[in-house]
């Protein structure tokens, strides 16, 4: 187990170095950073001095080592546009994105899994058919369209929920949370549902397919033949056996939720990482772009590590040394 995690950590370092290398090349190829930093009328000498001071004349390997070292210590450089450290900007924006993504994952799992179990058990029921049809809509409609429809219905026509922003936030140390105020909650509902709808339908369909598969197995039949209650059979024996693929997909999806919250954040004017990134692209603000890239890579690596560890928790067949058990 420890050996496995250690191996994974070593792999992660290589993945992060690779992502870092891509982020680093941004600086080399996307315009000359000196141009965006100095005044229009700066002399060649001034430019050269700045170039020397920033270390841009050093060999490329030295520059990359310095860049990687900075990234590892959380120093992402200065934003050209905001004239502030990128790390400060990220700390401001990150909680908004993480809360949004976190809530949509929770919604997707809390609603998707029971719906999947239900439709898996009552395959031909009317409610199952309604769920399945609705889920088709969830899978096929693009996020921005759902967002706009929600805004139109709940904000414009009904006027129940705000259409943009995060509402009031409370500062907990460096973390600003909207989950402790009423206006924060009412603001997060629409974007979280919009973002989570696709994942929810995905989880539901996955759990349904897996449940149908598992319910056909001999051990479920044997469990029934022992007179176990339906609840024990369905939720104890069957559901747990569906979890490995669900964990895999959910893990991958959490990563993409954070990475691709951009669209939802734009539709709902959500002050998160995605919007910061979009603005950065428009302004060719390379430090923010590369920091965003490295961070998303980092999230994916961490989530995948957690997913791998969860496999071990769920499935004993992976956990125990095979040689030990044979007789």
């Amino acid at each position: 187990m420890l050996k496995f995690i250690a191996g994974r950590l070593v792999q992660s370092v290589f993945v992060m170095l690779f992502v870092g290398a891509i982020a680093f090349t941004l600086f080399q190829f996307v315009g000359d950073p000196i141009n965006s930093m100095v005044a229009e009328d700066a002399t060649m000498a001034e430019r050269e001095a700045l170039r020397e001071r920033l270390g841009l004349n050093d060999p490329i390997v030295v520059q990359f080592a310095r860049f990687a070292g900075n990234m590892a210590t959380g120093d992402f450089g200065f934003s050209y546009q905001h004239k502030r450290p990128v790390s400060d900007l990220i700390v401001e924006r990150l909680p908004a994105t993480l809360e949004l993504a976190g809530l949509s994952v929770v919604l997707a799992l809390l609603i998707g899994i029971p719906m999947g179990v239900y439709t898996g058990l009552h395959r031909y029921g009317v409610i199952s058919k309604v769920f399945m049809t609705l889920s088709l809509i969830g899978v096929s409609l693009p996020t921005f369209l759902i967002g706009i429809l929600f805004i139109y219905l709940f904000s414009v026509i009904l006027g129940w929920l705000p259409s943009f922003g995060r509402g009031d936030t409370v500062q907990l140390g460096w973390w600003s949370t909207g989950l402790l105020t009423a206006s924060g909650w009412s603001a997060i509902i629409l974007p979280a549902v919009t973002l989570g709808l696709f994942q929810m339908t995905l989880v539901m369909r996955l759990v349904r397919a897996e449940m149908m598969e598992v319910l056909r197995t001999d051990y479920i039949k044997f469990a029934r033949a022992r007179g176990l209650s339906n609840r024990a059979v369905h939720f104890g024996h069957a559901l747990k056996n569906t979890m490995v693929p669900v964990i895999t997909i959910t893990g991958l999806q959490i990563g993409s939720l954070i990475a691709f919250a951009i669209i939802t954040e734009t539709v709902f004017q959500w002050p998160g990482m995605g919007r910061l990134f979009l603005q950065a692209i428009r302004q060719v603000d390379i430090p923010i772009m590369s920091a965003y890239l490295v961070m998303i890579g980092f999230f994916f690596v961490v989530i995948n590590l957690i997913v791998d560890i969860l496999y071990y928790v769920v499935d004993p067949r992976l956990r125990i040394d095979r040689a030990k058990g044979a007789n």
Binding site: K240, N241, P316
Partner: peptide, 29 residues
């Protein structure tokens, strides 16, 4: 089922739930 009539199936490799210990399955029953 189980209380008055017990059942034994063909394939011992697939009739036990792989995610629970033998004891857990016995105790539950």
């Amino acid at each position: 089922r189980g209380r008055k009539i017990g059942m034994i199936f063909q394939d011992p490799l697939t009739s036990l739930n792989p995610l629970f210990t033998v004891g857990q399955q016995l105790v539950e029953t």
